[in-house]
Amino acid sequence: MLLIFAFLMGVANFAMHKAVVECGHPFVEDTKRYFGTYLGPYGSYAIELALLIGALWLANEGSVLVGLFYLAYTGMNAVATWMLLTGKT
């Protein structure tokens, strides 16, 4: 069950990540320009994928603590996405 929750949180994280990348916020655009020189245009997605793979791997091993950390990460992503998309920053 933990594996399913980690997968669903990963899907939510990717959806939020895509929404933020495409929002056009000046902070996001500056960050893309800076990190794009080092990671390429899809480097942030690769980092997100690495986090998801790690969370899924450890969830499969039964690590509840990692599931809680990934839940906290997803919650922070949700708050940051909401702030960027609604102009609260």
Rank of each mutant, 00 (worst) to 15 (best):
L2R: 05
I4Y: 14
F5E: 08
F5W: 13
F5R: 07
A6S: 01
A6T: 10
F7Q: 08
L8Y: 02
M9W: 00
M9R: 07
M9V: 10
G10A: 03
G10M: 09
A12D: 06
N13C: 13
F14R: 00
A15E: 10
A15C: 12
M16P: 13
M16G: 08
H17M: 02
H17L: 04
H17P: 00
H17R: 04
H17G: 01
A19T: 09
A19R: 14
V20C: 14
V21K: 12
C23E: 09
H25L: 06
H25S: 12
P26S: 10
K32L: 13
R33D: 04
Y34G: 04
L39Q: 10
G40I: 05
Y42A: 10
G43N: 06
S44A: 13
Y45D: 11
A46S: 11
I47L: 14
I47E: 00
L51F: 15
L52G: 09
I53Q: 11
G54F: 13
G54M: 13
A55F: 04
A55C: 01
L58R: 11
L58P: 02
L58F: 14
A59Y: 06
A59C: 00
N60Y: 05
E61P: 02
E61N: 03
L65K: 10
L65I: 11
V66F: 01
L68G: 10
L68M: 12
F69L: 15
F69R: 04
Y70R: 08
Y70A: 08
Y70C: 03
L71K: 00
A72I: 15
T74I: 10
T74C: 13
T74W: 11
G75M: 06
G75V: 01
M76Y: 12
N77S: 15
N77C: 15
A80N: 11
A80C: 02
M83K: 11
L84T: 12
L84N: 08
L84Q: 09
L84C: 01
L85R: 01
L85P: 05
L85F: 03
T86D: 01
G87N: 09
